[in-house]
């Protein structure tokens, strides 16, 4: 078994701009647009609710748009928050988001085309939520169907990109679910709102027992961005690449001795790939050999030892 453990340093963020101007709805000509994305159950809506509440407290017009429905079922969740003196559309036009907050890595990549190409700020948790769909391929040595892009790929495309190990940091601080608050802390460094206002609203919106940890991780998020901008070392792990494709695959050949098979159907029913059938003589047959992955289940379960699998070669499988 091969496990390539090449680790890339993602946290040594090059200082793109030393004095970054904060987004200020009083001076901005257009509404300020913050897009918050993630996967169902991560707390995307909560982040946008806090931001919208602050905007409302400070007297700005704010619109917040999200789509529910399938979101609960592990689907994509996004929330558009637009605020300023006057806001028309509740959704952010593509290419006009000032800040993109992603609670999940691949979701951040999905919405990149919403960011302003010249000034957009990308802030993402490096956490991966791998969908079942990514683990579907049955080809020997198949790649996981998850995005391969790394923080350096993102950095080439936007003004500023921050890949924070927020979930890990929040877990260390005592509550994994506070990762979204950590990203709120990161977001707060891009906007002109006073710190007290952020903490006040967070304190009011979270369950009383969790106020302390939420405020603590909020600070961590702020510190992370500020230090990162100055090129100072920051907390959190490195961006771990995905498992590499396997090169030592074993290809097998399945053979059935028809005289020994009594047609009990066990192999047909238990085959994970459903590539066996009972033929017209009630004898097991490999109907779709290309689907067989060589897992040996049929061989082990056959009460009559009628099935055998043999490796055909040990070479690399492309």
């Amino acid at each position: 078994m091969t496990k390539i453990n090449k680790v890339m340093k993602a946290t040594t963020q090059p200082a793109v701009r030393t004095a970054v101007e904060k987004l200020n709805p009083d001076t901005a000509k257009e509404p300020i647009n913050v897009l918050i994305v993630g996967v169902g159950g991560q707390g995307v809506i909560m982040v946008s609710k806090v931001l919208a509440q602050i905007c409302q407290n400070l007297g700005y017009q704010v619109k917040q748009s999200e789509v529910h429905g399938m979101a609960k079922r592990g689907g994509v969740v996004f929330s558009h928050v637009r605020f300023g003196q006057n806001v028309w559309s509740p959704t952010i036009p593509m290419g006009k988001a000032d800040v993109l907050i992603a609670l999940e890595w691949a979701e951040g990549l999905r919405w990149m085309n919403y960011l302003r190409p010249d000034t957009g700020i990308f802030i993402a948790d490096t956490k991966r939520i791998v969908p079942p769909f990514a683990c579907r391929s049955r080809i020997l040595g198949a790649d996981i169907g998850y995005s391969k892009n790394t923080p350096s790929d993102v950095r080439e495309k936007v003004a500023e990109a921050f890949a924070i190990d927020a979930t890990e940091m929040a877990t260390k601080a005592g509550n994994e679910r506070a990762a979204n608050t950590l990203l709120l802390g990161a977001l707060s460094t891009t906007l002109s709102f006073p710190d007290d206002e952020w903490k006040n609203v967070i304190g009011k919106m979270v369950p009383p027992k969790t106020i302390e940890v939420n405020l603590a991780v909020f600070d961590k998020g702020q510190v992370w961005i500020n230090r990162s901008r100055k090129g100072e070392p920051v907390e959190g792990g490195a961006f771990v690449p995905l498992v590499q494709p396997e090169i030592n695959s074993v290809r097998t050949e399945l053979s059935i001795t028809p005289e020994w098979c009594k047609g009990c159907d066990i192999c047909v029913k238990m085959c994970p790939e459903r590539c066996l059938v009972l033929n017209k003589d009630q004898v097991a047959e490999l109907a779709e050999p290309e689907k067989c992955t060589g897992c040996h289940i049929c061989e082990w379960l056959c009460p009559d030892f009628a099935i055998s699998l043999k490796p055909i070669h040990q070479e690399a499988v492309a």
């Binding site: 996967v39 399938m70 979101a71 079922r73 592990g74 689907g75 994509v76 691949a106 979701e107 990549l109 999905r110 990149m112 085309n113 969908p131 079942p132 769909f133 990514a134 169907g145 998850y146 995005s147 892009n149 790929d153 495309k157």
Partner: peptide, 11 residues
């Protein structure tokens, strides 16, 4: 889109 989007259907 700038990157190939990950397929994440509701499950």
């Amino acid at each position: 889109p700038q990157f190939e989007p990950l397929i994440r259907p509701p499950v």
